[in-house]
Design a protein around this nucleic acid. Structure first.
Lengths: 139, 139
DNA sequence: TGCCATACGCACCAAAAGGAGAGTGTCGGA
DNA sequence: TCCGACACTCTCCTTTTGGTGCGTATGGCA
């Protein structure tokens, strides 16, 4: 049973996968991808792309079904990664608004293809799931 | 404190967000997006796009750092959603291979933009994180 | 006088994601 | 003879995700 672990471990040093780019870049890119390929991030990105500058509760409204905790977390991570700018107006009912940076807009544009794919093929995904259930589930 | 819950609840009936598409389609698309915008799914998709047909352990090798459990789960979900075809050769050391379907290839193409974005801007994301740490973290 | 609204932080909890390790069944090689 | 290989599955465990509810500061409105 060592073999699999050995192979997996070896994987981390040697890059059998994609030779063109260096392993260090590979790993960074994967890290960024993993961070960004998140449900809430995608939804918030969409909302801000569609509506421009929004404040906290407005983002929540646009995204829909997100808790304040997750919204805070997602926005903070996006701020950290340079995808949004957070502007605090020091007034007494607090007022904070969020805008996409250029980086954020670029990412949003990149995700556009995935949205289009989902809109184009969701029916086929549904059909595939149904077929799978009938084939596998209700044998 | 009811206000937020009311607003959130209202959100689910009325579509304040994106009028152009119907709410039903919206919800389906979001569901598909949430399913598909997954780290492992993206990585497996990439591996299969790059190398064509692969068998179980080969996919694991190409993706790198994935446990067998997650690999099984990811591949099963992708099969269910019609992204890959799973072919079992009934020989005695088991032999199963996985190939992208047309749907899978289309999705892979759609994600291409995100990969390009990550490759183009990962340095800027790193810089943004560093700046954020210095600004916020090590105040 | 007193409650509401904003944009959170914090504490507590449940559920899901994810990893490590063992087991499986048979066959071919050492 | 007995171990390893494949493609898993199962169990146990930790970490992450996500939800709910509470607190907060204070100017404005009733």
């Amino acid at each position: 049973m060592q073999a699999i672990r050995n192979a997996m471990a070896a994987m981390h040093q040697r890059s059998d996968a994609i030779p063109p780019v260096s392993p260090a870049v590979e790993s960074l890119v994967r890290q960024v991808i993993a961070q960004v390929a998140d449900k809430w991030t995608m939804l918030v990105l969409e909302a801000l792309e569609e509506h421009g500058t929004l404040r906290f509760t407005e983002v929540g409204r646009m995204v829909g079904g997100i808790s304040q905790k997750m919204l805070t977390k997602t926005l903070r991570e996006m701020e950290r990664d340079g995808l949004v700018v957070r502007t605090v107006h020091p007034v007494i009912p607090p007022h904070v608004d969020y805008t996409l940076t250029e980086l954020g807009r670029e990412l949003s544009a990149a995700f556009c293809g995935v949205w289009t794919w989902a809109e184009t093929y969701y029916a086929e995904v549904s059909a595939a799931r149904k077929a799978f259930r009938e084939r596998e589930g209700g044998a």
